[in-house]
């Protein structure tokens, strides 16, 4: 089943065309890694999918709904799309548990007690059951990112977007976050992950998208892509980072 269908997506900031004519299809349960040089438009592509950036041209369907249709309820559509940011963006004035329950209670009108039960289960799942009363600023980077993942999951999204979730972390904390993401991948969550972690991409992803200067230059199954990239651009890029 298709979860995401992107058709001829273009995005322009002023006169800077950042995304050029991108078309992609992603099935339910697929894990897709998006890689490419800095400034190639990876974040912009991801942000278009939950309309944090408004596409200039093209169509985006998520779970069958055309998000680019004129009268679409953007706020409602975003409930089904979880997003994890490089810099976490937890709500600093709320406790960890309140971070998880805020949107379910206020947006989905779930009962507080039910939301808290669910929140505690999620915290347990990301290994932070003992932190529910802590405030975000008292946590390490890796812990913050795990809370951020749990917060997104609390909305029971159909798919999850990750924008360089480990890039702001100290090296020793990368693994704990990647482990949580791997677990999530095994539960069948559809995931789009912008990452520089090639090991993760190779091991977990079903599909790799390689972006360069706003174009989708190459897509492929990870082993094939990393061992025998077809395009010269991808060969250059991999030669530099591996």
């Amino acid at each position: 089943m298709l979860v995401i269908k992107v058709q001829k997506l273009s995005k322009t900031f002023g006169d800077n065309q950042v995304l050029k004519d991108i078309s992609v299809e992603i099935n339910a349960g697929e894990v897709v890694s998006i890689i490419g040089p800095s400034g190639s438009g990876k974040s912009t592509f991801l942000r278009c999918i939950n309309l944090l950036e408004k596409p200039t041209e093209g169509k985006i369907f998520v779970a069958g709904q055309d998000l680019t249709a004129p009268k679409v309820n953007v706020t409602k559509a975003r409930e089904k799309i979880g997003m994890v940011f490089q810099h976490f963006h937890l709500f600093p004035h709320l406790t960890v548990l309140d971070n998880l329950t805020y949107a379910p209670i206020k947006v989905k009108q779930i009962k507080k007690a039910d939301a808290e039960d669910k929140g505690r289960k999620l915290l347990d799942r990301v290994g932070l059951a003992d932190k529910e009363k802590a405030y975000p600023n008292s946590l390490s980077g890796g812990q913050k990112q795990r809370v951020a993942i749990a917060r997104a999951l609390a909305m029971e999204p159909d798919l999850m977007l990750f924008d360089e979730p480990t890039s702001a972390l100290d090296p020793e904390m990368v693994k704990e976050v990647l482990d949580v993401m791997k677990d999530l991948a095994h539960t069948g969550m559809t995931m789009l992950v912008v990452t520089h972690e090639m090991g993760f991409a190779r091991e977990v992803a079903d599909q790799v998208l390689f972006l360069d200067e706003g174009r989708l230059v190459e897509t492929g199954e990870p082993n094939a892509f990393f061992d025998k990239p077809v395009s010269e651009r991808a060969q250059d890029f991999l030669a530099k980072i591996l």
């Binding site: 706020t75 559509a77 963006h89 709500f91 917060r151």
Partner: peptide, 29 residues
């Protein structure tokens, strides 16, 4: 931080509610 707005948007929080619960309490500080 703009990230606060983006996180709230990404969770599907409507503008008014985001202002009242997320942005204004932090702005107040």
């Amino acid at each position: 931080d703009r990230g606060q707005t983006e996180a709230a948007h990404a969770l599907g929080v409507p503008y008014r509610q985001m202002m009242i619960d997320i942005i204004l309490p932090q702005a107040l500080k």
